[in-house]
Amino acid sequence: MIDFILYNDLALSFAIENVITFSFVLTFLIVLIRYKSEKSLKLGALVYASSYILSNIAYGTLELLPNGSLIGPDFFYLQWIMYESLTIILCFMIHLSMKIQHHEAVINAYRLSCINMFSCLIVHYLAIVKSVPDHWFYSVYSITVNTTAFLIVFLFVFNIKRSVDSCFLKFRLS
């Protein structure tokens, strides 16, 4: 049985974080070259790539600050929820202002970000509010956040137009 203990292996988690950020930048370049006509996909890839870069920079900056000088230590998981929400809101607002229809991959990326947000919220409750030292959900969380990030990359790189709603509809009809 594989035991996932990424959440307490900081070096490994930082390495994965950097790989994810790099793959988002690479994704944006691939989308820019391969799918020139897909405005929404290009915009989504750009917003997600910049979000991952900026959130990593912001996280690094906040880590350098002494505890309690700007924000409390309780903000650790909440900041990831904030970054995800701001990414969705910003991407949506740009689409709305430029009157571009959302690509199915971008909508699915939003949904995956929502899953990320919920898992962060649960971990915040367990680790910060309840102070539980060890819980099975911590492993689930570390797998979820990384898997969703790679799934978003996959959606953008392969221009996945399949809607989740239609998949459910087919499943229900069959």
């Binding site: 929820i81 929400s85 701001l86 969705i88 939003y110 949904r111 970000s113 929502c114 947000m117």
Partner: peptide, 10 residues
């Protein structure tokens, strides 16, 4: 608040 706004959008 911002996460609720994001969820409503999604």
């Amino acid at each position: 608040i911002i996460s609720i706004v994001a969820c409503v959008i999604v």
